[in-house]
């Protein structure tokens, strides 16, 4: 007998209950919640940097951040970079990027998270190897909570997707918060 069948047989032997369908999980939506306000609040609490939109020049805050940066890799049409990647780029070649600019598929107000899929990132390591990450997000794509988030289609379409909630962080030494533990040192966001 294969390991697989051995393990499954042991489990079947241990479980004798008839199958009953689980009832579905409620969405727990809150009444009168200002989703955008909540998103901004939690995103900031998680260590994200909120970029304010300039009325005349919406991308000014992004461009200001990039002004003195050396290697800028933008995979969004709205922002121009100087570091080109394609889906064929080797994942570890992205290590010398200072700033990456991407567009998130959606945001989650409850946890201040943004969802970056493999499509958003072009190369998955773009979300982690650069020193800093700038994210554009369509405010219409912010859902209220994680129940909404996991009801989204992305999880069934892509092979990889991650919720980012602030930058890479650790408090492993004496509980002191350090940003930029392994991945990006900062995560900035512009609603655009």
């Amino acid at each position: 007998m294969s390991n697989r069948d051995l393990i499954l047989n042991r489990i079947r032997h241990a479980c004798t209950v008839e199958y009953v369908e689980l009832s579905s999980v409620p969405f727990f939506h809150q009444k009168n919640l200002d989703i955008l306000d909540k998103f901004k609040k939690v995103f900031t609490e998680m260590g994200g940097e909120w970029l304010d939109k300039d009325l005349k020049n919406p991308l000014k805050a992004v461009n200001d951040k990039l002004a003195s940066a050396k290697n800028i890799c933008s995979v969004v049409s709205e922002v121009k970079g100087n570091y080109e990647i394609t889906s064929q780029s080797s994942p570890n070649s992205l290590h010398d990027i200072d700033f990456a600019v991407v567009r998130a598929s959606f945001g989650v107000a409850e946890t201040g998270s943004i969802c970056l899929t493999e499509k958003d990132l072009v190369v998955n390591t773009l979300g982690y190897l650069p020193q800093h990450l700038i994210v554009l997000l369509d405010p219409k794509e912010i859902v209220e909570n994680l129940h909404d988030a996991y009801a989204r289609p992305e999880w069934k379409i892509y092979h990889y997707a991650a919720l980012h909630s602030g930058p890479s962080a650790t408090a492993d030494i004496e509980g002191v918060l350090i940003r930029g533990a392994q991945g990006v040192r900062s995560l900035s966001l512009l609603l655009f």
Partner: peptide, 12 residues
Amino acid sequence: SPITQYTSYFRG
């Protein structure tokens, strides 16, 4: 904290 900084999903 409301969520870990990264909640990563590997489907393939």
